[in-house]
């Protein structure tokens, strides 16, 4: 929207031991843009998302969010690894939603949402709770605030997880296959919340197999395979007229 770059990856690589999981990934996401990443299982999509908020460390290349290097500080031409505290500070601006929701099962929905604002931002409990109620309303669960995760359906749990991430007022939201663990009839309610979020101008990177969502909501689409970006561009174009054989083969399987 403003044309400002939110995420910039410049030849990012990452290995686990001898397993090269990301090979020279380059892409950029502008503020307010929605990027969808698709690709077969094991192609490194989750690893790439986890690198963006420094849950994994990048081995080579440069990865920055809002112009700030992720996980490192550059000084006098040298890179210094950030302390855990500094890395945590960078994560405050980045929300993440997981395939398996990862709600805290010993806390109610509202308690899940208020943890980070209270502990990290030192917000008062009353204020955090009021904000949590607002967010629960926003994801369509206004009456479920005092439910424990185990008493909510998968779709409801994932919506609480989205509210929990939003409670930190992130500038960027990362979604790692947010609907893959859901029963088919529950996928729609989560996608609806995400569509609303996209409309409100949130910058989003979404790993998904929901091609309908990608076509409708994404501003751009990246197809990854074997740790490389095989093809990227306008989602309608990539989905209807893929240029590469691997993209074609993958799409013919999922569509």
């Amino acid at each position: 929207m403003t044309g400002m770059t939110m995420v910039l990856a410049d030849r990012v690589s990452k290995s686990f031991g001898a397993n090269k999981v990301l090979r020279s990934i380059s892409l950029s996401v502008d503020a307010g843009e929605v990027l969808c990443i698709v690709g077969p299982s094991g192609s490194g999509k989750s690893t790439f998302l986890r690198c963006i908020n420094h849950l994994e460390r990048v081995d080579a290349g440069r990865l920055s969010v809002e112009g700030q290097l992720v996980g490192y500080r550059e000084k006098g031409g040298r890179l210094y690894e950030l302390k855990p505290k500094e890395a945590a500070f960078q994560r405050r601006e980045i929300g993440m939603v997981f395939q398996r929701f990862n709600l805290f099962p010993h806390l109610t929905a509202v308690e899940n949402i208020i943890q980070a604002p209270m502990r990290v931002k030192r917000m008062s409990k009353a204020k955090a709770t009021a904000r949590a109620m607002e967010l629960m309303e926003r994801v369509g669960l206004g009456d479920k605030g005092d439910y424990y995760p185990a008493h909510l359906s998968g779709g409801q749990q994932q919506r609480v997880a989205i509210a929990r991430a939003l409670a930190m007022d992130p500038k960027l939201m990362l979604f790692d296959e947010p609907t893959s663990a859901l029963d088919p009839e529950l996928v729609g309610e989560v996608l609806d919340v995400m569509k609303g979020l996209a409309k409100s101008g949130m910058t989003m990177i979404v790993v998904t197999h929901e091609m309908g969502f990608a076509r409708e909501v994404a501003d751009s689409l990246v197809f990854m395979d074997g740790g490389v970006v095989v093809e990227s561009g306008d989602p309608r174009q990539v989905l209807t007229a893929p240029q590469h054989g691997r993209t074609k083969a993958f799409l013919s399987k999922v569509l």
Binding site: L55, K85, A88, F98, H106, A116, M168
Partner: peptide
Amino acid sequence: EGQEEASKALAMSWGQTMRYIVVPQ
């Protein structure tokens, strides 16, 4: 493990993660 990861992604420190998320469970 997902619990620690979610807590970390919410910018909570290791100590907070242990105290409020992992140990109670």
